Amino acid sequence: MTATRTELAARLAAYDRLLEVGVGRRPEVAAALVDAGSEVTATDVFDAPVPKSVTFVRDDIVARRDALDGGHPGAPYDVDAVYGLNLPAELQRPARDVAHAADADFLFTTLGFEEPVLPVERETVGGETLYLAPRRR
């Protein structure tokens, strides 16, 4: 794992229960969070290989957002934070909406060349910008 990913995991470890949107083939941050004592569920639209310590649920964040109907998104979104790494612009709003419906913070990094498409606070973690769309209180 890169130094930046290690620092991102350390920053996210402030949360007890997290869900990673779009884990893909890079579950190292999720695994590091579990090692730090957090509970982590990883999701993706395709089956993704994750360590046994990380719970995996096949889920489509866009479909989940579209099915909200003003309520809680349900399991597995009983978390303190939803995060995405290298999250493309088209998934930022759906992920934020689901996180906020779950009363969770939403944190993410972008693909690098993209700016966030929603209002965020910015934080530098390692060499990466971490964006935070805090839950509504």
Rank of each mutant, 00 (worst) to 15 (best):
V117W: 03
E123A: 09
D60A: 13
P73V: 06
P94R: 01
P49S: 14
V50Y: 03
N86A: 14
L118E: 12
V50I: 06
D103Y: 02
D59H: 14
T110S: 06
A101V: 09
L111Q: 12
L33H: 09
V82P: 07
P116V: 01
R65I: 04
T41N: 08
A75C: 03
V45G: 11
V50K: 05
R65T: 08
G24Y: 00
E28S: 08
L91N: 06
A75F: 10
L68G: 02
A42G: 12
A42Y: 01
P73W: 06
T43W: 02
P116N: 03
L118N: 00
V34H: 05
H100M: 05
V79N: 12
F46D: 14
N86K: 15
T55K: 15
D80V: 07
V54K: 09
P94Q: 05
V50W: 02
L118G: 01
A101I: 06
V34F: 10
A81Y: 01
V82G: 05
D105N: 11
V45N: 02
T43G: 05
P88Q: 07
V29T: 13
A102D: 01
T124V: 14
L68T: 06
D80G: 12
P76V: 06
L85A: 07
G84N: 04
S53P: 01
F46A: 15
V21Q: 03
D35C: 00
G37R: 09
Q92T: 04
V54F: 11
L85W: 10
G74M: 13
H100Q: 14
T55E: 15
A101E: 04
R58W: 09
A48I: 08
G22R: 03
E121P: 00
A95G: 03
N86V: 02
E20V: 02
Y83M: 01
D35K: 13
T110D: 06
V50E: 04
G71V: 12
L85P: 00
T43M: 07
H100L: 11
F106R: 00
L107W: 11
V40D: 09
A89D: 14
P51R: 06
G74F: 13
P49N: 12
V82Y: 07
F113H: 12
V23A: 03
A31M: 00
F113K: 09
G84A: 09
G37N: 10
D103G: 12
T41L: 03
T55P: 04
A31I: 00
T124H: 02
P49T: 11
A102C: 09
T110P: 06
A30K: 04
A30V: 05
A104C: 04
T124S: 08
H100N: 13
A48T: 09
V23M: 03
D78G: 15
D80C: 08
T109F: 05
E115H: 06
R122Q: 14
P119D: 15
G70S: 10
A63I: 11
